[in-house]
Design a protein around this nucleic acid. Structure first.
Lengths: 192, 192
DNA sequence: TTTTGACTAAAAAACCATTTTGGTCAAATA
DNA sequence: TATTTGACCAAAATGGTTTTTTAGTCAAAA
């Protein structure tokens, strides 16, 4: 229906500006102007700027979730799947400007309003990694004492390493770092 | 001699205030007043506030380095040594307020002036971890393809995980996290 | 049902005056 | 000679005020 179409164009416009200028330096006016609408129109579909940003981030993360789900649904050897997952996970998030925005914002303890969207993504990822590790354990490839603890420390490493990786350029070779990280983790989990 | 004595009291005073208020909210005047000296006296020993902070941080890190050296110099099984090293490494840094200050400052891309002191510490740590891993490799406990790469990824994880660990309180159980991290890494490196 | 655009209250930015602070230095002290 | 002082300066930080911008509202129009 038409309603969804307009909503879609608003989100598209918002995505452009939020990606380029971040949350605080984007105005509702410019988002509206870009699609030749009055600012008020946006408020017919979204109750606030924060809700709009949330929607943008949510869609960006949903696309990433979908891509990652494909990897977990494949029929491959669990260790191979895990490598693939990590590789794509960082690649996809590395390309999500609004995710970077959020990361940065969280360091400055602003952006509390994205908590739900981020929590959802973390929860998704926790589930996927658990599934992969369980597959590996069941098929005898992996040796894991406590799957839960393992998933937690892996999540923590992922979420920590993002900051230097995405926000600072302090680390020369991104590619290399990810590959070494994959080796370290898979080495740790696989039976020898 | 007397010169060193005065210099020492200045550093002590500076340590107190920098630890309590951080670099920017500490004034040279209060550092001087606390030891009943005029501000100018400090400038007889240190050429700037930045140099003074550097000295404070340097001494804090030197103490930590000394403590860590003791661990590496011990005669124990390499894997045990590595566990000990990691455990104390985080424990010691966790108690260094001025190191936290620096970490925070680096995120906000200020504090460029501490670069040398930090680089020195990183270089020290790179050396120690390399020594431990080489010991482990030579004595047949560890299985490592490239020691250099392994050291780099471990360093990166250490330096990344500090941010949530020290600066945010987002992670519930510090103890537990460190232990899981130790398990993950040692598992990855040791022969089975 | 959807869009507009004038409107408001609050936040941000710009501005200015005042104070604080890092750093200097000639003179005093030891 | 080696060290300390404290008045002094320029630059930065701070506080307070005015102006501008912006998120959000809403009655009227389409």
């Amino acid at each position: 229906m038409t309603e969804d179409k307009v909503k879609k164009t608003i989100i598209e416009s918002a995505t452009i500006f939020f990606s380029k200028y971040g949350f605080y330096k984007t105005t509702m006016d410019e988002i509206a102007r870009h699609i030749h609408k009055a600012k008020g129109a946006i408020y017919y579909y979204f109750k606030s700027k924060e809700e709009l940003f949330n929607e943008v981030l949510k869609q960006e993360l949903n696309t990433i979730k979908a891509a990652l789900l494909k990897i977990v649904d494949r029929e491959v050897e669990p260790m191979e799947m895990f490598k693939d997952y990590i590789l794509h996970r960082f690649e996809l998030l590395n390309n999500s400007t609004n995710y970077h925005e959020t990361l940065k914002g969280n360091l400055f303890d602003k952006y509390k309003f994205v908590k739900d969207v981020l929590d959802d993504f973390h929860s998704f990822e926790r589930t996927q990694i658990t599934i992969i590790l369980e597959k590996g354990k069941n098929s005898g490839y992996l040796e894991i004492a406590s799957i839960n603890s393992t998933v937690e420390i892996i999540m923590m490493i992922f979420n920590s390493i993002e900051i230097p990786l995405f926000l600072q350029d302090s680390y020369k070779n991104y590619e290399n770092t990810i590959n070494e990280l994959i080796s370290l983790i898979t080495n740790s989990l696989s039976k020898k």
